[in-house]
Design a protein around this nucleic acid. Structure first.
Length: 900
RNA sequence: GGGCGGUUAGCUCAGCUGGUCAGAGCACCUGGUUUACACCCAGGGGGUCGGGAGUUCGAACCUCUCACCGCCCACCA
C-alpha cells in the first residue's frame, strides 16, 4: 500500500540507485541494434561550478528530450563532462592559497601550481556532477569527459597544429584587451561594458611657436603621455588652419602633429581629439593610417612606465627637462596618475574645464577591473575564414536554430567576426604547442619531439627550444566538445555513430562564446555540422524578472528547492515555463503547483492500487466495451499525441500542459469519479474491465510524465507492477493508438449534464448535503437509454437521487437544457422562483445574443460569399442549436411561471 | 547608433499557419470530510488582448505608427 503522500526526499536516492544499477543511461541502453541514434552533448559546466538555476533549466530540458527519445526506442547518448574553466579555476585555487597563507603561484612555479590545481580538482572539483544526478539527469556517466583529459588535450593540440599549418592560426602584434589584474589577454567576448560616472577633461595643448592652442577632450588624461597626434575632422573649419601645425605636448614636451582624419567627430567634445595609438583601439587605427609612433606608457599592471620605456624615451625631445615629472609619474597606477596629470596641467593653466560625464568602460568579465588596450603579441584564429562555412551551414538549413529569430543574431555576429585572440597568460589550461628557437623561429608541432625534429631540419643541428608559456582560451577546447568527447582524432565507433549530434540545448548568452565556435570547428575538422538543431532557451530570472546575480542577492539555489519540493517539482516547473524565446521566471507558487501535481498523480495511483487495478499484460484496449473506458482510452491517446508533437518541436510548455490537463481534468476529475460507481455496484465483468483499463491508462500517464518527473513516475511504476515490468526509464513511449468518437461524444455529454446540474444547484443554493430527483423532459429514446446507462454516475456526481424519464414537468423545479433536451430538478420548498426566473431569463438572453450575433454575420453577403463553406456552415449549425436551446429555455420559463 | 524580444484577468504567463481563442496556474469569493488526494473537491467573479490607423467577409494573431519595458551588438572625446 502506498503512503498517503509522496516523499521525494526519501524516494529519490533509491530510484537513482536503481537506474545506476541497471546501467539504464549507458549509450544505446534499451535500444535495438538498428535504432536511430540520438545524441546530445551537455554544455560542460565549469569544474568549479555548482548547480544554479540556469543549469537546472538547461539540463532539465535536455533530460526531457533524452528520456523521451530513449523511450521512443532511439539509441541515445547524452554525453556528460566538465570544462576546466581556465581563468575561473586558476582564480579559485589562487584564492585558496592566499587564504591558507601559502606562497603565491609565482613563488612555487608553474609545474607545482598546475599540480595544485589538479589536486584541487580531485578533491573539490566537479561537485556539480552529483548535483546533476540529483536533478535526475540521465547522462551516460560512464563516458564523462574533462576538457583537460589526455584525450581531449590531444584533440586540442591537433586542432591547433593543423590550423597553424593551414595558416588559420597566427601570431600577431596588435592591441588586445588586457586585464591588468589577471595579467592576461582576453577575447572581445570576455569584455563587458560597465557604465561609470566619470569626467571629461578638456585639455589645452599649446601650438608650437605661435602662442595659439588647441583643446582636446578626454576621459583618460593619463594616456596623454603617449599621445602622438591631435586629430581634427578635415572639414572642420574651426581647425582647418591648424592642420599640419605641431603641438608641444604638455608635461612631456614631445612635438606632435595636428592631423586631419575623419575619425574626429566635430560634434563630440571639442571636435579635436588626442591620438594615443598605444592605449585606444580607434587611435591605433588612426595611428596606422598616419604612420604615427605607438608609445605605450604603461606596464602590464597598468602602472605608468616611463623611465625604462624605450618607446617613450625615444620619442622624448632631447632638450626636455622633464625628469622630475617623469619621476613623479613613473610607477603610479593609472588612476593615481590620472589625478596627478590633471593637477599638473591645472597648475600650468592647461586644464580648460572638467565636465561630469557618464560613459561605459570595458571591464574584464572575471576580474571586473577596467581592461586596458595593450600592445602585445598574441595568438589569433582567423575566425573569418572559419565562419564562412558556419554561416552557410545555417543558411542552407543543415543546422536549424530554434526559435528561428536567433539565426539573425548568429549571422550578424558571424558576418562581422573579428580575429579570435586565443592565447592567455595563465598556467591552467592547454599549453600552446609552439616552441621557439634562439632566433625566435617558431615550431608548432603536436609533441616536443616533433618540434625538436622540425628544429633539427631547420637549423641542421640540435638546438635548444623554449616552449611558449601561454595557454589557450578555455573556449578553444569547448569548441571541439561535440567531437573531442567522442574520441576524435581517433576514428571511434562512437564518433561515427553519434556525430553529428541531434540537438544542442543552450541559453542564448553563449551563442557567440560556444555555439558559433563549435560550428566553426566542427565543420572544419569533421566536415559536417556538430548538431542538426540548436534549441535556444531563455535565461532564468527571479520572480521580478531581474537577472540572478550574487551582487543582487537574488540567487535561488535549485538544490534547496529540490530538498523542499523534490526534483520532479522543480523539473516540471522549468519545463512548463519554457516557451520558445521567453525567459523563465520560476516562483515558489509555481513549484508548489508542480509538487501538488505530483501528489495528485501519487494519489490517483493510490486509488488505483486500493481498487486493485493491476497492469494486465494481456490487456487489449480494442476489446474494451464500457463507454467510460473507451472514452478515457481515447483521451489518453489524444494526450500522448499532444505530448509527442509538442516535444518534437521543443514546445515544452505545451507538452506539460497537455499532460497536466489529461491527468488532472480527464483522468482524476472525471474518469476516477465515473468509475467509482462501477467499483461499488458494477457487474464483475465491468469491474474487471475497468480495473484493467484504469491500470493501463495509469501506465500511459506514468510514461508520458516520466521525462518530466522521472522519480515519482519510476517509483509508482515499480510499486504498481511490483517490479515485474523493469524500469520505466527503459519502457516504451505510449503510442496514440485508440480513438472512439462516439464514446467521446457520450461522455462529453455526461460531463456537460453533470456540470449543468452542479451549477444550477449551486446557484439555487441547494444545500450540498441534500439530494434531488432528476426529471428528463424528453421522449428521445436514445437519450433516455444513455441517461439510464449513466444513472449511477449522474446520481453520484450530481447528487441526484432517482432519475425520472416520464417527461412530465414537476411543478416546482429548476430547469436546464443540455444536449438538446430539458432536465428538471424538482426543488419543492427550496426553489426561489424569482432567482430561477432571473437565471432562465439570463440564459435566454445569452442564447438570443448569440443568435443575433450569428445572424448579423450571416446577413453579411461578403461573409457568405468569401468565407470558406465549412466556416459558414458551422455558423448555421450553431445558430440552429442555439435556436433549439432557446425554445426549450422559453418553455421552461413558461412552466415556471405557471407553477408560480 | 544597429538589432531582437515584450506589452492579454489582481499576479505570472499560454494562445503554433487570421474564423468556438478570450485561456491556464496562482490569488480572490461561495459551499464542502461524497470509497485517492485539503498539496483536495464543487461552484463562481474577473480582461474594450498597450494606444491609434490600416488590410480583410472576419484581427489578440497580418501591415504601419506611437508609447512604455527588457535584452544583445557597436560606439562613446
Amino acid at each position: 500500500m502506498l503512503e498517503k503522500t509522496y516523499d521525494a526526499e526519501g524516494v529519490e536516492p533509491a530510484i537513482r540507485e536503481s537506474w545506476e544499477k541497471a546501467d539504464a543511461f549507458r549509450a544505446g541502453a534499451g535500444a535495438s541494434a538498428d535504432a536511430e541514434p540520438f545524441s546530445i552533448v551537455i554544455p560542460p559546466p565549469n569544474v568549479t561550478g555548482s548547480l544554479h538555476m540556469g543549469h537546472a533549466l538547461n539540463n532539465t530540458l535536455q533530460d526531457v528530450l533524452v528520456r523521451f527519445e530513449r523511450m521512443r526506442g532511439k539509441d541515445v547518448l547524452w554525453q556528460p563532462g566538465m570544462d576546466h574553466a581556465g581563468i575561473a579555476t586558476q582564480m579559485v585555487v589562487e584564492r585558496q592559497m592566499m587564504e591558507r597563507q601559502e606562497p603565491d603561484r609565482r613563488k612555487i612555479g608553474r609545474d607545482a601550481f598546475v599540480e595544485k590545481v589538479w589536486a584541487w580538482k580531485a578533491e573539490s572539483g566537479g561537485v556539480i556532477v552529483n548535483q546533476l544526478k540529483r536533478l535526475g539527469c540521465s547522462c551516460d556517466w560512464s563516458r564523462q569527459r574533462f576538457t583537460m583529459d589526455d584525450g581531449l588535450s590531444k584533440a586540442v593540440t591537433k586542432v591547433f597544429v593543423n590550423l597553424y599549418k593551414e595558416g588559420l592560426i597566427y601570431k600577431d602584434q596588435r592591441l588586445v584587451n588586457w586585464d591588468p589584474a589577471l595579467l592576461t589577454a582576453i577575447s572581445d567576448l570576455e569584455v563587458l561594458p560597465v557604465e561609470v560616472e566619470g569626467q571629461l577633461w578638456h585639455l589645452r595643448y599649446p601650438l608650437e611657436g605661435n602662442g595659439r592652442s588647441i583643446t582636446v577632450a578626454t576621459t583618460r588624461p593619463e594616456t596623454m603621455l603617449g599621445d602622438s597626434a591631435v586629430a581634427v575632422h578635415p572639414n572642420d573649419e574651426r581647425y582647418a588652419d591648424m592642420i599640419g601645425e605641431y603641438v608641444v605636448l604638455p608635461l612631456v614636451g614631445r612635438r606632435i602633429p595636428i592631423i586631419a582624419d575623419e575619425y574626429a567627430d566635430p560634434e563630440a567634445g571639442s571636435g579635436a581629439v588626442k591620438i594615443t595609438p598605444a592605449h585606444d583601439f580607434n587611435d591605433f587605427e588612426v595611428g596606422r593610417r598616419h604612420n604615427l609612433p605607438v608609445i605605450s606608457v604603461m606596464d602590464a599592471e597598468a602602472n605608468i612606465s616611463l623611465k625604462n620605456n624605450e618607446a617613450f624615451l625615444n620619442e622624448l625631445a632631447p632638450s626636455s627637462k622633464l625628469t622630475h615629472i617623469i619621476d613623479e609619474l613613473d610607477g603610479l597606477d593609472r588612476f593615481t596618475a590620472r589625478a596627478l596629470v590633471v593637477s599638473l596641467l591645472e597648475e600650468r593653466e592647461l586644464l580648460e574645464k572638467t565636465e561630469d560625464h557618464t560613459h561605459t568602460v570595458p571591464h574584464g568579465d572575471r576580474s571586473n577591473v577596467p581592461i586596458e588596450p595593450f600592445l602585445t603579441e598574441q595568438w589569433y584564429v582567423n575566425a573569418k575564414a572559419l565562419a564562412t562555412p558556419a554561416i552557410a551551414d545555417v543558411k542552407n538549413g543543415r543546422t536549424t536554430i530554434v526559435p528561428k529569430h536567433w539565426e539573425k543574431t548568429y549571422f550578424d555576429w558571424m558576418e562581422n567576426i573579428q580575429p579570435w585572440c586565443i592565447s592567455r597568460q595563465l598556467w591552467w589550461g592547454h599549453r600552446i604547442p609552439a616552441w621557439y628557437g634562439p632566433d625566435d623561429e617558431i615550431f608548432v608541432e603536436e609533441t616536443e619531439e616533433e618540434a625538436a625534429a622540425a628544429a633539427l631540419r631547420h637549423y641542421g643541428e640540435e638546438t635548444e627550444l623554449k616552449r611558449d608559456d601561454d595557454v589557450l582560451d578555455t573556449w578553444f577546447s569547448s569548441a571541439l566538445w561535440p567531437f573531442s568527447t567522442l574520441g576524435w582524432p581517433d576514428e571511434t565507433p562512437e564518433l561515427s555513430r553519434y556525430y553529428p549530434t541531434a540537438v544542442l540545448v543552450t541559453a542564448f548568452d553563449i551563442i557567440f562564446f560556444w555555439v558559433a565556435r563549435m560550428m566553426m570547428m566542427g565543420l572544419h575538422f569533421m566536415g559536417n555540422e556538430p548538431f542538426q538543431k540548436v534549441f535556444i532557451h531563455g535565461i532564468v530570472r527571479d520572480e521580478k524578472g531581474a537577472k540572478m546575480s550574487k551582487s543582487k542577492g537574488n540567487i535561488v539555489d535549485p538544490l534547496e528547492l529540490i530538498d523542499e519540493y523534490g526534483a520532479d517539482a522543480l523539473r516540471f516547473t522549468m519545463a512548463s515555463l519554457t516557451t520558445p524565446g521567453q525567459d523563465v521566471k520560476p516562483s515558489r507558487a509555481r513549484i508548489e503547483g508542480s509538487r501538488n501535481f505530483g501528489t495528485k498523480i501519487w494519489n490517483a495511483a493510490r486509488f488505483c492500487e486500493m481498487n486493485d487495478c493491476r497492469p494486465d499484460p494481456d490487456f487489449d484496449p480494442q476489446a474494451v466495451s464500457e463507454t467510460v473506458n473507451r472514452w478515457i482510452l481515447t483521451e489518453a491517446a489524444k494526450a500522448s499525441s499532444e505530448v509527442t508533437v509538442a516535444l518534437e518541436s521543443f514546445r515544452f510548455n505545451d507538452a506539460c500542459e497537455a499532460a497536466y490537463r489529461f491527468v488532472w481534468d480527464s483522468f482524476c476529475d472525471w474518469y476516477l469519479e465515473l468509475i467509482k460507481p462501477v467499483f461499488a455496484d458494477g457487474s464483475e465483468a465491468a469491474k474487471a474491465e475497468t480495473r484493467a483499463t484504469a491500470a493501463h491508462v495509469l501506465g500511459i500517464i506514468l510514461r508520458l510524465l516520466h521525462p518530466f518527473m522521472p522519480f515519482i513516475t519510476e517509483a509508482l511504476w515499480k510499486e504498481l507492477s511490483a517490479g515485474k515490468d523493469g524500469l520505466l526509464a527503459l519502457s516504451k513511449w505510449p503510442a496514440p493508438d485508440f480513438a472512439d468518437a462516439d464514446a467521446a461524444e457520450e461522455i462529453n455529454w455526461l460531463v456537460e449534464l453533470v456540470g449543468a446540474i452542479r451549477s444550477v444547484r449551486s446557484e439555487m443554493n441547494v444545500p450540498t448535503a441534500s439530494k434531488t430527483q432528476l426529471v428528463a423532459l424528453t421522449k428521445d429514446d436514445v437519450l433516455l437509454t444513455r441517461l439510464q446507462r449513466h444513472e449511477p454516475a449522474v446520481e453520484r456526481l450530481a447528487r441526484v437521487e432517482g432519475i425520472a424519464a416520464n417527461g412530465d414537468a414537476p411543478r416546482q423545479a429548476a430547469q436546464i437544457v443540455v444536449g438538446g433536451a430539458t432536465f428538471a430538478l424538482p426543488l419543492a420548498g427550496i426553489i426561489d422562483f424569482s432567482a430561477e426566473e432571473a437565471r432562465l431569463k439570463k440564459e435566454i438572453d445569452r442564447v438570443e445574443n448569440e443568435i443575433s450575433r450569428i445572424d448579423s454575420k450571416l446577413a453579411n453577403e461578403n461573409f457568405v460569399a468569401r468565407a470558406p463553406e465549412d466556416v459558414v456552415q458551422a455558423e448555421r449549425d450553431k445558430r440552429a442549436a442555439y435556436q433549439e436551446d432557446g425554445k426549450r429555455l422559453s418553455a421552461a420559463l413558461e412552466r415556471l411561471k405557471q407553477a408560480a
